[in-house]
């Protein structure tokens, strides 16, 4: 049975993430909750694949359906994160002082990160490598944006105020 080449990226990615997670558990570090969510999503995909395969759908189509359902779940999780970050942007006004800029910088970084990660995961899961590639390139640029903005704010606004 021929498997589309883009779908081969998903098992490689999952193997790498699971190996890194097990390595962090072995070293005694606390496991972050996104890793637990990843295991839940993998179990969800396996169950959906088995259900569709038991109903007579071909195995390749069952795997495609499961991956598309998992990408739907990732889209919904990303939507929740983005709405929470947007509420934070709405709430933190200028009355919180000068340093509120760095809080806003952090929040916009969270929105950027969520957008990039959703593009990477969904692109890999639905077999759209171009979406994942653009998300990956943008994900590499995000730290430079935050650093450049914080640097500009510090040197223009706060450097003269220090004793």
């Amino acid at each position: 049975m021929m498997v589309p080449a883009s779908y081969m990226l998903v098992p490689i990615f999952v193997v790498v993430v699971v190996a890194l997670s097990l390595y962090s558990v072995k070293r005694g570090k606390p496991t972050p909750s996104p890793v637990k969510s990843l295991f839940i999503l993998i179990a969800f995909a396996i169950v959906v694949t088995l259900i569709y395969a038991s109903r007579g759908l071909p195995l390749e189509a069952s795997i495609g359906a499961a991956l598309k359902l998992v990408s739907s779940a990732i889209l919904l999780i990303g939507a929740v994160f983005i709405v929470c970050a947007s509420i934070g942007l709405f709430r933190f006004g200028d009355e919180w002082g000068v340093n509120i800029f760095y809080v806003r910088n952090h929040i916009t970084g969270i929105i950027d990160d969520t957008c990039a990660l959703v593009m990477i995961f969904v692109g890999l899961l639905i077999g759209r490598v171009d979406v994942a590639a653009v998300g990956l390139i943008f994900f590499a640029l995000i730290p430079f944006i935050g650093n450049a903005l914080a640097n500009a704010y510090y040197y223009t606004k706060q450097r003269g105020e220090r004793p």
Binding site: S71, S72, G78, I82, A85, S86, L89, F90, V118, I126
Partner: peptide, 21 residues
């Protein structure tokens, strides 16, 4: 249909984030 609804929900959340930014 699930993928379409999830995508529309994600785009709606992006609209909220756009208003905030």
């Amino acid at each position: 249909l699930t993928f379409l609804v999830s995508g529309l929900a994600f785009i709606l959340s992006l609209c909220v984030a756009g208003a905030a930014t």
